[in-house]
Amino acid sequence: MILGYNTNGFAHHRLEDALAIIAELGYRGVALTPDVNHADPTADDYPRQAGPFSDACARHTMRSVIETGSRFALDTRRKHQPTLISSDPADQRKRADFLSRHVVLASRGLLHDWGGLGIVSLWSGTATDATTPTTLMVRLADACRRLSDFAADRDVRLAFEPEPGMFIDTMDKFAELHAKVNHPNFGLTLDIGHLVCTGELPIRKYIEAWKHCLWNVHIEDMKAGVHDHLMFGEGEVDFADVFAGLKAIDYKGMVSVELSRHSYDAVNTARRAKAFLDQYVG
């Protein structure tokens, strides 16, 4: 497996500097979260930004995945809005175009996981109206199926992340969505802390159950019932169980540290995280 670091944990650094530091600390991968200050995904020249990023990954011999979790890139006042389940079709298209741009970036010559295939991670977002769960699921599944077709044509896989507080927040709901999308290019991003937050334990059970399409992993510490990404050792995650499960399925993808709220102390946080995880990955 490849130990990486998410650039959302270096929010106050230039992207080129963040990549250099992540590589210097010994990480072999980077999870790029394009944002207003890191390869702005709303900029007209966004696809062309793949070149410098790809060059930097090659220079540092790091593999990559593309994350889509920028908070205010599409709406400066509402976090993570609009979404694929928004009530307004124009808003749905706005999110779909946003995600398509990430797919294009992932397809442009980066050092990927999984034998040269790009990985784009995404989530459902939250509903902002009283639409029924059934209707929301239909909207989301249809949008994910179309995006999966778009990504497959570009040698990119989609890895969907259940997120506490969002429409798809548990593995059971993800299983329902996965069955409805029913596309070979649509798989899973598993956030380790989220499973602890939602009480879906033991973690190894879910790793093994979804090994056929587990394409991306996020890691941090967390406590039951509280969606707060914590430094390793400050929560309740059983990391021995996690890495035993990943090794049991011979997982070859990215395991990326996600500590965006620690950007104020990014370098020290990334160093401490690497030292902690080396006991399991090394």
Rank of each mutant, 00 (worst) to 15 (best):
A240E: 08
L190M: 12
A152C: 14
A106H: 12
Y5F: 15
P162R: 10
K94I: 04
R63W: 02
E163Q: 08
D238K: 05
C197K: 10
L74T: 06
H38S: 02
L122C: 15
T33I: 01
V138F: 05
L3Y: 00
E24R: 12
E16D: 10
M171D: 13
F243G: 05
A143L: 02
Q279W: 13
D44E: 12
A224S: 13
A244I: 02
G245E: 00
S64G: 03
V156Y: 04
D172Y: 13
E258I: 06
H12N: 14
A266R: 06
A90Q: 06
L3K: 00
N185G: 06
F98C: 06
H183D: 10
T7A: 02
D241R: 08
F98P: 01
F160Q: 11
G165N: 09
D17Y: 07
E16F: 00
W114T: 03
V36L: 10
P89Q: 03
D153N: 12
R63Y: 00
H178A: 11
G118L: 11
E67M: 02
G109P: 03
T76N: 02
D113L: 15
N268L: 13
A179C: 00
L19Y: 00
N6C: 15
R78D: 05
L105G: 08
H194Y: 10
I2F: 11
I203E: 06
L195K: 07
W123T: 12
M222L: 10
G282Q: 13
L195A: 09
V257F: 04
G116K: 03
D278P: 09
F98I: 03
S107W: 01
G225Y: 15
A159P: 10
V30T: 01
R272L: 15
G199Y: 15
D228A: 12
M62T: 04
K223H: 11
K173M: 08
I2R: 08
Y251Q: 11
D17N: 10
P164A: 08
A152P: 02
A224T: 11
P133D: 09
G109W: 04
H80G: 01
R28Y: 07
E258W: 06
G69H: 10
A20L: 03
S263T: 15
A248F: 04
R145I: 06
G4I: 07
M222T: 13
D129S: 14
H38I: 01
G253M: 02
A141H: 00
V181Q: 09
C213S: 15
R154M: 11
G199S: 14
P202C: 05
A58Q: 05
L136M: 05
A90L: 04
L111V: 10
H262D: 05
V103T: 01
H212L: 12
G115Y: 11
S54H: 05
L246S: 07
F167D: 00
Y46H: 04
M171Q: 15
V120K: 03
I66D: 00
V138W: 01
I168L: 07
R139V: 02
